[in-house]
Design a binder for these strands. Structure first.
Length: 583
DNA sequence: CCACCTTTGAAGTTG
DNA sequence: CAACTTCAAAGGTGG
């Protein structure tokens, strides 16, 4: 499998892929992000205050103009200063860390101290993510030793409250999962670390299942005492080669699908899919499960749940699809916890069964929001989601390409999984479920009104010196360029007033938010055909003067599947798209 | 109680 | 095929 740094195969990040159990990176990041958040907050507040009455003077352009200089991390940190987006990287470099080959699924490698054949600590313990271990979660939630039911305290058994405690002090939570898969959650940067085996099924990173997840069973082999480090007592995680090539997709192991983004989910998001049973709630975001997929787990605890009609009809035999834990959102159970408390809602369950509400898979930005919302909220007193979302939107644009790519990839996987889980589902099914009254007071501004309220969000100030120096507006704020899956979406986004071609041809320097999409249009020139809607990482635009990590990203993808390969292939020719003249 | 707000992206619908 | 619409999350706000 292609690897970024010639690591290749199991040699995942073999260079310096050690965990740095330190927080300095976090602190840096935190500081910078605090600054960023404060600035964002100030901007938003100011914006909110002024927006209604002053469309132009206090626009974000002005605001962003205020922040260019040193403190202008927000828009430009990813390129300009290592503070914001680079912080994690620096954190990693700060010690034993290494930038994961693929940011979305960073590899966390820790030296296998127990391996007698790797005295030089060049053998590393692969960790996987996202994997949830209920017991581990429970241990986090309640580290009291033994709750009858889970084997937290059972020696050599799953979890290891001990581990959790120990690792918590190291800013990492180890969550031991089924069959010894271990998930690490970094409390510092909230970046889960994962290392799927190179031969992993495309979906396996998203999947961890087992019917016996909670059943007291023999501990995973790697957690057996015999794999404990005799010196440290640290359970040794087997090398990738020791791990099951694929997650237990065997017929007998049909089980849960752990959401790939469980780590992204803030604690407060205990949605329909929240994991109901056995104290799966935990104060740690890493242990919560994204709504869209956590139901897969929750369903596990909801015996009454039945696979969606689509699944029942199609009779898929794929373990994922036959998983008993299928998300079953019902119209009457739409926003509540899926646990028993809401099980007996007032609405007739019959209807609910007939019309399960399957939510749309989250897109990249939604995933990002879920991850970052809590952070932003914590960093500021602002509670209003609208304002928070504005901040998040800006941050999203300020993300580096890699960062965004991470979310795009996660979103892609989520969609993929979603489509497999609900083959017959269509976004159309959800149309009308929300009686969203159409906005009537739609701002009537003309397309040429470049500084209308709607177009003021992003502007030149977002072009950091570094960006401008690039000579190409391919900077981070043209996030849609990074939309690997659907570059064309850039032209079809709701908030984007249909850009005219003339607009696209215009200089991009002063693009505002909707115009930023124009930028995409201009540079990416994405066409449905060229993007084919399924060419992740096609990187249509952005002929980056600076290194384009994303170009090599797929190579770093720990997933060895055709899709990725094809993506890679597509992605390797972004320039063709760029140079393609607009029709 | 529930739509609105606000964000981006994906997917659907419309012309 | 372009343009437009809807929905996904979130939670305070206001009708």
């Amino acid at each position: 499998m292609p690897q970024l740094n010639g690591g290749g195969g199991d040699d995942l990040g073999a260079n310096d892929e050690l965990i740095s159990f330190k927080d300095e990176g976090e602190q840096e990041e935190k500081i910078s992000e605090n600054v960023s958040a404060e600035r964002d907050l100030a901007d938003v507040k100011s914006s909110l205050v002024n927006e209604s009455e002053n469309n132009s003077s206090s626009s974000d352009c002005e605001q962003t103009d205020r922040r260019p200089q040193p403190g202008a991390q927000r828009g430009s940190s990813a390129r300009q200063s290592p503070s914001f987006a680079e912080a994690p990287r620096r954190q990693q470099h700060g010690g034993l860390f290494k930038t994961p080959p693929y940011a979305g699924y960073p590899f966390l490698m820790i030296p296998d101290l127990t391996n007698p054949y790797s005295p030089g600590a060049r053998t590393y313990l692969p960790m996987k993510w996202p994997l949830l271990d209920i017991s581990g979660a429970a241990a986090l939630k309640d580290s009291r030793p033994t709750t009858p039911g889970h084997a937290v305290s059972t020696p050599g058994s799953y979890p290891s409250a001990f581990w959790v405690v120990c690792l918590l002090s190291l800013s990492f939570i180890k969550i031991t999962g089924h069959r010894g898969r271990v998930a690490w959650y970094c409390l510092s940067n909230k970046v889960p670390v994962v290392q799927p085996p190179p031969h992993m099924h495309p979906l396996t990173p998203l999947i961890t299942y087992s019917n016996d997840r909670f059943s007291p069973r023999a501990p995973p082999a790697h957690l057996s005492p015999d794999v404990l480090d005799p010196k440290t007592g640290i359970p040794r995680t087997p090398h990738a080669s020791e791990l099951t090539p694929y997650y237990p997709l065997s017929p007998g192991a049909v089980g849960q699908i752990t959401h790939p983004l469980g780590w992204l989910v803030p604690q407060q998001s205990q949605h329909v899919y929240s994991i109901p049973a056995g104290g799966f709630r935990t104060p740690y975001a890493a242990l919560t499960v994204s709504p869209s997929m956590s139901s897969l787990v929750s369903g596990h605890f909801s015996p009454h749940m039945t696979p969606p009609p689509a699944l029942r009809q199609t009779g898929h035999t794929h373990p994922v699809l036959t998983s008993p834990s299928i998300k079953q959102e019902t119209s009457n159970n739409d926003d509540g916890a899926s646990d028993s408390a809401h099980a007996n809602a007032t609405a007739p369950p019959k209807e609910a069964e007939l019309k399960p509400h399957i939510k749309k898979p989250l897109n990249a930005f939604m995933l990002y929001m879920k991850e970052m919302r809590a952070k932003v909220v914590a960093e500021c007193t602002l509670k209003e989601s609208a304002a928070i979302n504005q901040i998040l939107g800006r941050r999203w644009h300020s993300l580096s390409r890699e960062e965004q790519a991470k979310y795009y990839e996660l979103a892609r996987k989520e969609r993929q999984l979603h489509s497999q889980l609900y083959p017959g589902w269509s976004a159309r099914d959800n149309y009308g479920k929300r009686k969203k009254r159409k906005r009537e007071n739609k701002p009537e501004f003309k397309p040429e009104d470049k500084f209308s309220p709607q177009t003021k969000k992003l502007c030149v100030a977002y072009l950091s010196p570094a960006e401008t120096a690039c000579g190409s507006p391919t900077s981070s704020h043209c996030s849609m360029l990074d939309s690997p899956d659907t570059p064309s979406v850039a032209l079809a986004s709701p908030a984007a007033p249909a850009p005219t071609h003339s607009e696209q041809a215009q200089p991009l320097s002063l693009t505002t938010k909707p115009d930023s999409r124009v930028q995409h249009a201009h540079f990416a020139l994405p066409t449905k055909a060229s993007s084919s809607g399924s060419s992740p990482y096609s990187q249509p635009g952005c002929s980056l003067p600076r290194p384009l990590p994303l170009l090599t990203l797929p190579a770093g993808l720990p997933f060895n599947h055709v899709a990725v390969s094809s993506q890679h292939a597509v992605q390797l020719q972004p320039l063709s798209l760029v140079t393609k003249p607009a029709d």
